[in-house]
């Protein structure tokens, strides 16, 4: 069974600007895959290359084994896209918009009508079916984009920042719906700025920056790449920062609290406490804080911006889908991070 998405050295140039830099990425069938990255990272360019709204400059891109340019009909038939922009036909009531879209995908009129009703009910705007797009509220418009993507019953659902600017209730509704779809077997590719969203929904995420894949990992793997902070409250505020062991990346004192940054807070805390007690400090309280995925994301993309050279990035990109390769990438990333932190860069 071919992967849902497979790109190899995918390149897209806009004049002098290289929007996608030899991007190799694999999304397996049935996966819930997240694409994370700052604005301009190339997420939407990547998606638009798959659906035919951007023509690639070089490399390969396939959807369920179908080349997106030479076998574009098969590739596009498999995809349902809910884009960022409200690119909906304003001339027709929304039910007809959905019927047209289904029709373009070869669904006969009667069936298209049934499907349109069904997806409108599913996203909760069935009672608006005779309205035109412009008369819908912002949240309803977002729901309609999802309905339009679903009306063709795609095997691959692509959601380009579906929850941008929507309220909490709608965000949760959308999460619930796409989770159901994924459980039913639909492969999902989600781009988002919300780390919480990726953490909550995705099996794996790719972090992109400046058209390049920084890393691919599960949310848990990514979080393990971050450091923990052990905050120890001391009975007597120290005058200088206590001397702690080599396990600490950084230590600082704020009042009577000592913050120590380590790789693994759980396993390092007993050692730290022993060292502090041996140095004559009395411990009043202890707290361990894990780095959030958001902080790791910011750290990874910031590091890319600052110092990763093209060849460095290429070698990191080799850690695509395999867990072992990811592991290598993860270890290397952590070491680099530690080195930079010690140098006071990160």
């Amino acid at each position: 069974m071919p992967p849902a998405i497979e790109t190899v050295d995918l390149v897209k140039d806009y004049g002098e600007l290289r929007a996608l830099q030899e991007l190799s990425l694999t999304v397996e069938k049935g996966e819930f895959f997240g694409l994370l990255g700052p604005n301009g990272a190339g997420k939407t360019t990547f998606i638009n290359t798959l659906v035919g709204l951007v023509r690639k400059t070089d490399g390969e891109a396939r959807v369920f084994g179908a080349d997106v340019e030479t076998e574009y009909r098969e590739a596009r038939d498999a995809i349902g896209l809910a884009p960022q922009e409200f690119n909906v036909d304003r001339f027709f009531p929304i039910k007809e918009v959905l019927m047209h879209k289904a029709g373009y995908h070869g669904v006969p009129e009667d069936e298209a009508s049934d499907r349109a009703d069904e997806v409108l009910k599913r996203v909760g705007i069935y009672d608006k079916r005779h309205e035109r797009f412009d008369w819908l509220s912002g949240g309803m418009k977002r729901r309609l984009l999802l309905a339009r993507a679903l009306v063709t019953e795609p095997d691959l659902l692509i959601l380009d920042e579906p929850t941008a600017g929507v309220d909490v209730q709608l965000r949760h509704d959308l999460w619930e719906l796409v989770t159901e779809l994924n459980d039913e077997g639909t492969t999902i590719l989600l781009t988002t700025h919300y780390i919480e969203e990726a953490e909550r929904l995705c099996d794996r995420v790719a972090i992109m920056n400046e058209g390049r894949k920084v890393t691919v990992a599960t949310p848990d793997e990514l979080k393990r790449r971050g450091t923990d902070t052990i905050s120890v409250t001391l009975e007597s505020p120290p005058t200088t920062t206590p001397d702690v062991g080599p396990y600490a990346h950084e230590a600082s004192v704020v009042g009577d609290r000592l913050d120590v940054r380590v790789d693994d807070g759980g396993s390092t805390a007993p050692q730290l406490l022993n060292d502090l007690e041996a140095a004559g400090h009395e411990i009043a309280d202890l707290e361990i804080t894990r780095t959030s995925l958001e902080e790791i994301f910011v750290d990874l993309t910031k590091r890319e911006d600052r110092s990763v050279t093209r060849s460095d990035a290429s070698s990191d990109e080799s850690g695509d889908a395999g867990a072992g390769r990811n592991g290598e990438s993860s270890g290397r990333g952590r070491n680099e991070s530690a080195e930079r932190e010690q140098e006071g860069i990160a």
Partner: peptide
């Protein structure tokens, strides 16, 4: 208005 994308992204 970019709704031609409905056609362009179809098979």
């Amino acid at each position: 208005n970019e709704y031609i994308h409905e056609t362009l992204t179809s098979p």
